[in-house]
Every structure is written in C-alpha cells, then in structure tokens.
C-alpha cells in the first residue's frame, strides 16, 4: 500500500469501544476518489463514530485508516489539510454572524484577511446566507445553520468532504438544495463521504453505499445491487383483528418462504417481496384461512426493508420482529 492510491478513504478493521459498547466493530471501507459514497444505517449504528475516526476527531481503538494514503493516527495534521467535516449538529459559532464565522475559519485555514473576507462573501452568496451575514446565528433556523456549516467546510475546497447526516431535520426544499450542492462538489473534483438514514438520499446521491449495523458493514455495493438483493417491493398489511397476527405470520412465511417479516402488536405487517406478483399469493392464502384485512399497500423498498432483509431486524429497534 503506497501513498499513491486511487482511494480517498481506505479503512481496515476500524474499532472504537466506549466502555463496554463496541460502537464500531471492525469496519472496512474503500471510497474511490471522485465518488459520492453513502454510509447508510440507523441511529446508533456507528456511522458518526466511524466518520469521527476518519476525520481525526476520535482515535481508533483498533484497525487503521488512510485518507489519500495518509494514516489518520500517524499523520493527523496532513489528513486535516485534505478534509472538510460537516457534523450532524452544526459546528459553527452561534453567537457570531455567518460572515464572522466564515472569516474566522478562513483565517484559521491560512487565508489572508482580504482573502478571508472575499471568500466569506462568495460563500454567503453561493449558500444563500446573506440574511444571516450580519446577525448572530442563534436568531436563525436550523437549515440556515446547516448551510453555513457546509459552507464553512468548503472554504478551502478540500478534496475530501465528510457530511454526517447532512439533511436530517431539513425541510424538503432545503434538502433538495443540499443535494444539488453535494452533486456540484463532486463535479468540481471533490470526493464526498456522507452518512444518512434515508435510502432515498443514498439513492439520489451515492455511487456506492455501505450499510452499517451495530458497528459493522453488513452490505456494500451500488444502490441498485443493494435494492435488488432485498427484492423489488414490500407489502404492508393491516389485519382487521390483531388476534389473527400469529396465524397470518405463519401463512405469509409459508407462502413467501421468508421469516423477515416486520410486525406491530396492533396487527400491521411489512413483508419484503421478491416481485410484486407475490401479493396475490399472500392475499389468497389469507382469504383461505379466513383472515380479514382492512388495508393493503405495496411500497418500494425502504431503509427499514433493507435493514430487515440484511440484518433480520428493523431500522427502528422498537419494532417487534419475527425470527
């Protein structure tokens, strides 16, 4: 493994332990240069911890990681010159204005006063932040702060940008804007590694995706391969009588030959389908058993479905799962 590499990020067996909790438990990642790479997983899967290790914010307890060939533990200062990090919680100064924030970050990145000032102006315009240019950020919405956060990560146009759940909590319009910005970053030569809880976000943006669960990569590949691995759709059913739940589960798992069925105690079921035709088989099976349903829908795969298929449990741990 020389320093010349086509990989922006190369992680092997990364481990981070908090107390008795192995938050990251042997994560391998290979992020090609110039790509948008998605790390997909539910809350608490270890996405943020992984990013923090790659961005030199946390020291790994095991394994190794390189950013453009530079070891994150041995050469942290080199790595920091190559990355921009935008966290889940906006890491900007809320008592300062947007302009002051950008100016200070520019100065810290080695720009002169004049350069910092003009770069701040450029970014304020580009990210539609002029409104917050002069007033302290705490007076503004989360979306505004998030945009500033991203702008601050782009002051020096780093070749690798980490985005930790860049659109969580944003309204749809701001979300779409953020997606465009991210696409633009890659067109201008950067590599982006983003984490997300949303399959559609990965679908929209990412060239490749790693699915993380309980600190481990459970699947890796293009979004299309991932989706096809879990079937094309999922069937949602609502039973008229929740008491029929166990019988219904037995019938469905018999018809589809799967145990990966999500259910709630009140009689709602989510079933992954290899193809939509199977809906009829399921419904006929239920009719024969005399089980009535009140609602039915067929949906495209969701992150929950991906999780169910890959890990045997839902993305939201509250959900009861048949296994």
């Amino acid at each position: 493994m020389g320093t010349q590499t086509d990989l922006a990020v190369e992680a092997q067996g990364l481990v981070k332990i908090f107390g008795t909790n192995r938050a990251v438990n042997g994560v391998d990642l290979k992020v090609p240069k110039g790509a948008i790479y998605g790390v997909l997983g539910p809350n608490g899967a270890g996405k943020t911890t992984t990013i923090q290790m790659l961005a030199t914010l946390l020291r790994p307890d095991g394994g190794s990681a390189r950013v453009f060939g530079h070891d994150v533990v041995k050469e942290p200062h080199r790595v920091r010159q190559l990355i921009g990090v935008t966290g889940q919680y906006a890491s900007v100064d809320e008592t300062l204005s947007a302009r002051e924030n950008l100016f200070i970050f520019g100065r810290l990145l080695g720009l002169s006063r004049a350069q910092s000032r003009s770069r701040a102006q450029e970014l304020l315009e580009e990210f539609d932040l002029s409104e917050a240019a002069k007033r302290p950020l705490k007076q503004f919405s989360g979306g505004m702060r998030r945009r500033l956060d991203l702008a601050a990560s782009l002051i020096s146009q780093p070749p690798l940008i980490f985005l930790d759940e860049p659109t969580t909590g944003l309204d749809p319009r701001t979300r779409a804007q953020m997606w465009n910005t991210i696409r633009h970053l890659v067109q201008t030569g950067s590599t982006v590694l983003l984490t997300t809880q949303y399959l559609d976000e990965a679908d929209q943006l990412a060239d490749r995706v790693a699915v993380i669960d309980r600190g481990q990569v459970v699947a890796e590949g293009t979004v299309d391969t991932l989706k096809s691995s879990i079937g094309s759709a999922s069937l949602r059913l609502e039973l008229a009588d929740a008491a029929d739940l166990d019988r219904a589960l037995a019938i469905i798992s018999g018809v589809l030959n799967t145990t990966a069925i999500e259910r709630t105690p009140r009689g709602r079921l989510t079933v992954p389908l290899a193809d939509a035709e199977q809906v009829a088989d399921v419904l006929i099976g239920l009719r024969h058993a005399g089980i009535a349903i009140t609602a039915m829908s067929v949906e495209k795969p969701t992150l929950d479905a991906v999780f169910l298929a890959l890990t045997g449990h839902g993305a939201n741990t509250e959900e009861v799962v048949l296994s």
Partner: peptide, 17 residues
C-alpha cells in the same frame, strides 16, 4: 462544549491555538 469546537479539532491548526 459547543459544536464549533468539533470543527476546530478537525481543522489543520495548532492544537494549542
């Protein structure tokens, strides 16, 4: 304790600054 310190940590600046 504020989020901005996370950014300072990830910036290529002197740790002592």
């Amino acid at each position: 304790d504020t989020g901005v310190f996370n950014r300072f940590k990830a910036l290529p600046i002197a740790r002592i600054a």
